[in-house]
Design a binder for these strands. Sequence first.
DNA 1: CAGTCTCCGTACACTAGTGTATCGTTTCCC
DNA 2: GGGAAACGATACACTAGTGTACGGAGACTG
Lengths: 206, 206
Amino acid sequence: MKASISTAAIPPDDVPTARLGRDDWLDAAFETVAESGFDSVRVLTLAASLGVTRGSFYWHFTDHAELITALVERWRTREIETHQRALEANLLEPKADLERMLEAALAHAGTEIKYLRFELALRGLGRHNPEVAAILVEVDRMRMRLFESKFLRLTNDPKAAADLAALFYLAIVGGTHALARPANPERTKDYLQRIIGHYLISQQTS
Amino acid sequence: MKASISTAAIPPDDVPTARLGRDDWLDAAFETVAESGFDSVRVLTLAASLGVTRGSFYWHFTDHAELITALVERWRTREIETHQRALEANLLEPKADLERMLEAALAHAGTEIKYLRFELALRGLGRHNPEVAAILVEVDRMRMRLFESKFLRLTNDPKAAADLAALFYLAIVGGTHALARPANPERTKDYLQRIIGHYLISQQTS
DNA sequence: CAGTCTCCGTACACTAGTGTATCGTTTCCC
DNA sequence: GGGAAACGATACACTAGTGTACGGAGACTG
C-alpha cells in the first residue's frame, strides 16, 4: 500500500494522488502476473489500476519489454537476498531447521501464495525466454544446494544428501504445480517428515 | 503428418491440397501450445501454418474458445485411455514394472517432450480456468493412484505406499518444471531407485 | 449432369493493445 | 518566485487479432 518514493523527500504517503515511481508499476505488474500470468500484463490495464494513463508508464519505462525484464530482475535479486538470509540462519539445530523449512515451503496460505503463483508464471515464461530460463536454473540450483546443506548435517553420506535434497525440492515444486489449491499441507508435511526419518534411520543402521 | 479424414472416403492421403478436418486444426493447435503456450494459439497463425485462411477455421469451429476446449477435452480422453492401458499392464512383476514406469516418466527425449510441454502449458491454463483445473485434478489423481497401486505390491503398509506414490509423482511433475531441459535423467533415475530400495528395506526390517 | 452439401477464400467491421509526440502540471531548488 | 526538471494527460498512427457475411469452387449423390 505504501507508495515507493525515488527522489522525493517527506512525501504525504497515503494521499491517493501521489506521484508514481518505477516500483509502483513493478508492484502492479507483479500482482497481475501472480493472478493472470505474464501474458496478461498490459500497459493499459496497469495504468487503469494505478489510476493514471499510459503517459506515466512511458516516462518510467522505455518499453513493455523493459517492464518485464525489470520485474524478473527484481525477483532474482530478492530471491538471492532471501537465500543469503537462509544461509545465515543455517547454523541452528538441523532437525528443527529442516522442519521449519518444510513448513515454509508448504505454507501456501495467506500472502505466500501470491509469490508462489508469480514463480509459477515465471517458470512458464522461462520456457520461451532463454534469459529467464537461465535465472530460474540459477535460483533452482541455489535452493537445492541449500536443501543439500541441511540434509548433509543429518547424514554422513554426501551423495544421499544430494539425492534427498533434489527429490524433495522437485516434489515441492511439483506440489505447487500439480494441485490447483494447496490440497492437504498437514498430511503432506507428515509424510515428508516420516520419509526423512525412515531414510536417515536406514542410513545410520546400514 | 497423416491428415485425419472425417466424412470423405478413400482420400488421396499425402496430397498437399487435401481438405482439412477438425483434427487437423487440433493437431496444429497442439503443436503451437507445446511450443509457445495457449496464449500463442492464434487462428490467423494456425491458418497460415496449415496453408489455408481463417474461413476454413470458422467452418469447423464456431469460436476460438471452442478450439481450446476441444483441444483440452481431446487431451483428457486420450489421457484416460493411456491410463486404462497402464492399468491393464499392471499385472507384471512389480519391480520391473516400476522401473519401466520411472523410465517412461523421465524419458524427456524425442517426441515425448512435446507432450510434456503441452501438459506444462495446460497446467498454466488450469490456473485461470476452473474447468481445466478440474480435469487436471482428475488426471493427477488417476496417475497417483496408479503409482500407489504399484508401490502397494512392494510393501505391506498402505499408508507408506500412498506417501511414496505422492512424493514421487510430485517430484516427477516438479522435475519437468524446475529444469528447462531434461538435465540429467540417468542420475535422476538412479537416485529414485536407490531411495525406493532404501525405503522398502526399512519397511521390511521394521 | 444438375443439385446440394462441404469446405474454403474474400472483404468488411470491430476491438484491444502498443508506441510516439506534444503539451500541461506539479515539484524541486536556488 | 522563477526556471528547470520530473511527471502525467491527450491525441494520433499503427498493428494484430477476432468474428461475420457472403460468395465460389469441388465433391458426392441421385
